[in-house]
């Protein structure tokens, strides 16, 4: 996703003279080298200064430029949160705050580097569009779509090596619209971010009717009409997110189910616990013990699991 972002920004900068990059001491992906070679003045490295990164991006946007700020997710969002709220959101400036390595991408580095409350936090702030692409292609599409916005976007990305999940998607990426990635029946899996890969793997493993898989890449504003439709069209909806329950997609889906009276639809939500994870290893090593695995998801698709998670 990191490389896809770099390619997208590089490509955008070829089309438009207003693209600038503000980075906070992160070695940009090798793919960004092309951007740097082609636009040596269109990057600002602020060093280890995330508040300055956001404030400067606001000022750059005031002059008519389209800044992308870039650092790893916890430092992109949490550290300069008030700058994001006041400088970007309150002033409604078109800055894309890229958080790379969100969720548990940095599973080996401990909870300081985990970003599992960001969707809730960013979504609570007015004017911010929150986007979590599931694969490199959606990352490219999200960058392209950002130029249509007049206000800020928080772009929640994984890190590297994410598989392509959308090449066979029956629907295109449209910002603000939930996207069907695979058409099935009976059960719908709805989620966001690279964790959606698990839905494809679980569908293969489940030996059950294949579920539909949806990418809710735009978490704010959430496509509630489509959520309502999914709640009507399926008797089992599984929400899958690399995020805590509070303020996550699962809560939103449950709230819609209440609101539209979809009481016949079973909802199973896979989310992270409300505590810091003091474990290390791969992402799967961290989420497996929390009940998030291909096997558990496959069981849910088979409806072996009806514990109202």
């Amino acid at each position: 996703m990191r490389d896809a972002l770099a390619r997208a920004i590089t490509e955008a900068a070829r089309q438009r003279s207003d693209v600038v990059l503000v980075v906070a001491d992160i070695s940009p992906a090798a793919a960004l080298k092309t951007f740097l070679d082609e636009n040596p003045t269109r990057i600002v490295d602020v060093g280890v200064s995330e508040q300055a990164m956001i404030g400067m991006a606001a000022g750059l946007a005031m002059t008519g430029l389209r800044p992308f700020t870039y650092t790893i997710a916890p430092f992109a969002l949490y550290r300069p949160l008030e700058q994001i709220r006041v400088d970007l959101a309150y002033q409604d400036l078109p800055v894309v705050v890229v958080g790379v390595g969100a969720g548990l991408s940095y599973s080996a580095l401990g909870a300081t580097h985990h970003t599992i409350e960001d969707v809730a936090i960013a979504s609570a702030i007015p004017n911010i569009t929150v986007v979590a692409p599931c694969d490199p292609a959606e990352t490219q599409a999200a960058v392209d779509a950002s130029f249509g916005l007049t206000g800020p976007m928080y772009l929640r990305l994984g890190k590297s090596g994410e598989p392509d999940l959308t090449v066979d998607a029956p629907e295109p990426f449209v910002l603000g619209r939930i996207r069907c990635l695979a058409q099935g029946s009976g059960t719908a899996v709805i989620g966001y971010g690279p964790l959606l890969d698990m839905a494809f793997q679980a569908a293969d493993l489940a030996s059950a009717p294949r579920p539909s898989i949806y990418s809710a890449h735009t978490i704010k504003p959430l496509d509630v009409e489509r959520v309502d439709r999914i709640l009507r069209d399926y008797d089992h909806v599984i929400v899958l997110e690399e995020h805590v329950e509070n303020g996550g997609l699962g809560m939103r889906v449950r709230a819609r189910a209440q609101q539209v009276g979809a009481s016949d639809t079973a909802i199973t939500a896979f989310h992270l616990p409300d505590r810091f994870l003091h474990t290390y290893g791969s992402k799967d090593d961290l989420i497996g013990p929390e009940g998030i695995s291909v096997e558990e998801l496959a069981a849910a698709i088979r409806r072996d699991v009806r514990h109202g998670r």
């Binding site: 600002v44 300055a52 005031m62 800044p67």
Partner: peptide, 13 residues
């Protein structure tokens, strides 16, 4: 910080 961004943006522009 915003002022630095404006100055840098002016230069770019």
């Amino acid at each position: 910080p915003i002022a630095l961004g404006i100055a840098r943006g002016n230069r770019e522009r």
